[in-house]
Design a protein around this nucleic acid. Structure first.
Lengths: 327, 327
DNA sequence: TTGTAAGCGTTATCAT
DNA sequence: ATGATAACGCTTACAA
């Protein structure tokens, strides 16, 4: 790799001039610009970002901290983040924490020492003190944060309500629910919204992690203990898929005997049989907004902290039966 | 963030001494070491990796170039790569190319100028000339590469054979196949293996991209034009899921009327109804091996190029019916 | 055993 | 309009 010095030499100018034409600042004559540009092209020169970083204290790097990219909710988020980062000339460093504080800490110092320009955090410990003393711009994504950290989330409470309303609307009268991990605030809101609308119609409920295996166990338990019910809301699409599978195993017909609504709107929902009705979060957009917000924080030095709340929508597929209804 | 200079001052030694204790090289007295370590602790000092990079010409960064993290095959791979990278003190930079050459190029220069220590490439253009002139260690993953680039792949040809053998073993006599994108060498091998064993039993075949939507269209066409068949091999699990969905739409019972085998062994296969029998690639292990190989290239300066071929296995779930058989 | 200083490739200040 | 040069924070000869 050529250096700025070699370019300068070849162009018969000083490194300062080369730097000026590259960064388009300061005065530089037309002729100078031309020779320099030729030299750059000839040497196939690209400035060393490490050296530049050392001086400017910016790296063009964004740290992305998530529990596990393998969880099907996160790839879309990561994609959105990487897309807009890339459009703005940033790269993203992927970190999987498995929600372990220790891993998170160690990533944090690694990222800090490599001078990342910003952080996007989709992890739970965002209320832990380490974040505050970090002097790096950051935004929390799909996580609620107490302190003055920016956040973008979608409206889980409304999503839960919408699920219950839809089920009722579709003629279900005996409702069941499988909630997510109880320590996840954003997920708990879905349950809260659902419960508030379901009221007395609720006949059974349990909780599960977001792994398919555990979801299957939870679904089995729910069927064992609370069947019959004719409408079920799952806290995410993976859990809903488990319910669907358990239903066929028990010869429960979906949607005729049991209507099911999932949550998230990940691609998996299209692939189940039958395709899953679900409450869709605007996943890609959440990632996009979070990144745009982060870039504002970085580049415009914005200082007021903001919380962005995005709406969710009902995606009707074939695990519910819409009946005619007023309104 | 404290600097080495501040540490030196506080410890009353030179920066060289501080550097020596941090890197554990050169002579340093016990007392010196102690004061320095105390100073480091007190100042909460961590060395600036950018500055270190500038000198050492290594960044601790690995570039991961993939088509699209959103494609369900890749997250597991990414996870494996990130895991082992992290265990060895490296971070990974995620790049989505959508198989577009232009994007790939621009990532390549970005990564190069930031001095990544190595590259893992799961993309198609790996035979393009840009890679060769890059002087960065790299390994191709799930891609076959002509030139002298290391690669880790799994045995697609054998996988295809295994699928056909299994279907035949399970009593299927009229076989169908949906292949993947034809330009993907590793995917084409699955088809080759399948066809070689299926022989005259093949009654119909088509191709599809790996998006669910297109797979559904392909499945419909296959049913329309070639039904009846009683054994189907899909080039990946997403396509198989589409087949399953189309089968229920047509009241074709799986596995009684039609047995289905997918390919990849992604989690999706557990979530379909019924759960999908599939040819599993050792996805995590592929990522692991690729990264370990890359680290060898980086750290041990290995120079002979190697191709690592991993075996695939049959994962029997419920879309096939194993009959008793000899051997 | 320890310190001084050069150098890594940039950018920006200050002369000229 | 251009060129020297200090500085960014670190590592490593080389000297002491």
């Amino acid at each position: 790799m050529a250096t700025i010095k070699q370019v300068a030499k070849r162009a018969n100018v000083s490194v300062a001039t080369v730097s000026r034409v590259m960064n388009n600042n300061g005065y530089v004559s037309a002729e100078a610009r031309e020779v320099v540009e030729r030299a750059i092209a000839e040497l196939d020169y690209a400035p060393n970002r490490v050296a530049r970083s050392l001086f400017t204290k910016t790296s063009g790097l964004i740290g992305l901290i998530m529990p596990d990219i393998t969880n099907p909710f996160f790839p879309q988020l990561a994609r959105a983040i990487e897309d807009v980062a890339n459009q703005h000339g940033y790269q993203v460093v992927l970190c999987n924490t498995d929600e372990q504080l220790a891993k998170e800490q160690s990533y944090l110092v690694a990222l800090q020492t490599m001078h990342v320009d910003g952080l996007i955090i989709t992890t739970n410990h965002s209320d832990n003190p380490n974040y505050e003393k970090l002097e790096v711009p950051m935004v929390a994504l799909d996580r609620i944060v107490k302190s003055g950290i920016d956040a973008v989330i979608s409206d889980g409470y409304e999503g839960g309500r919408l699920a219950a309303e839809t089920l009722l609307d579709c003629g279900a009268t005996r409702l069941a629910h499988i909630g997510g991990p109880e320590q996840l605030q954003t997920v708990k809101r879905r349950t809260d919204g659902f419960l508030d609308v379901a009221g007395d119609h609720l006949v059974g409920m349990t909780h599960s992690s977001f792994t398919f295996k555990e979801a299957l166990t939870a679904a089995q338990a729910l069927f064992d203990e609370h069947w019959p019910f004719d409408g079920l809301f799952a806290a995410n699409d993976v859990i809903a898929a488990a319910v669907l599978q358990e239903a066929v195993r028990r010869n429960v017909r979906v949607p005729q005997d049991l209507q099911v609504i999932g949550y998230d709107g990940i691609e998996l929902g299209e692939m189940t049989s039958p395709p899953l009705t679900t409450i869709s979060q605007p996943i890609y957009e959440m990632g996009r907004r979070a990144t745009e917000r982060l870039l504002d924080l970085i580049e415009k030095k914005e200082t007021v902290t903001k919380e962005i709340l995005l709406p969710v929508t009902l995606t009707e597929r074939q695990t519910t039966i819409r009946k005619g209804h007023d309104t």
